[in-house]
């Protein structure tokens, strides 16, 4: 598996985000955490998050962020959204689409791993992003 921004965010096969589910009340979190923010319990189990959901909100990042951003020096605006994963939670993620006219709240989107930057050895570093489903 290629290098990721943080392996602890993903299932071991790298195909899904890894969250937590509260054993007591069923609340989900991402990333994983040891305590439940809803019922204040402390028994949380790892759970893979759905790869498909619907776009809940979006924006386009219009300028290159300052440190600690590590994206390429040559900046291209990128989409950021919140995606509702049914029955789990609403996750924040980069979007593969950066044209606001091609994004719409409620549209179906799917998670994929995308190269985010190149490390010192020239190898790609992957992060998660959501892409509109059914678009070419």
């Amino acid at each position: 598996m290629a290098r990721t921004v943080d392996d602890s965010l993903f299932t071991s096969d790298g195909t899904a985000l890894l969250g937590s589910r509260c054993d007591d009340c069923g609340a989900h979190t991402f990333p994983r955490q040891s305590g439940c923010p809803r019922c204040t319990g402390s028994s949380m189990a790892d759970v893979p998050l759905h790869r498909e959901g619907t776009l809940w909100s979006f924006t386009i990042q219009g300028f290159r962020p300052k440190t600690p951003y590590q994206g390429p020096d040559e900046f291209e605006p990128y989409g950021v959204g919140y995606v509702e994963l049914p029955g789990q939670l609403i996750v924040e993620a980069r979007l593969t689409e950066n044209d606001p006219d091609r994004l719409e709240i409620g549209m179906p989107v799917r998670m994929e791993m995308v190269p985010f930057r190149t490390d010192d050895a020239g190898e790609p570093v992957l992060t998660f992003a959501f892409t509109p489903v059914g678009r070419s």
Partner: peptide, 26 residues
């Protein structure tokens, strides 16, 4: 929050307000 959040360009107050008002207007 993990370092990945800032490194991948998600930790910006300006961005948060864009996301929040977009949802609110909708």
């Amino acid at each position: 929050i993990g370092a990945w959040y800032g490194e991948t360009g998600l930790m910006l107050t300006t961005q948060f307000f864009g996301l929040k008002i977009q949802r609110y207007l909708h």
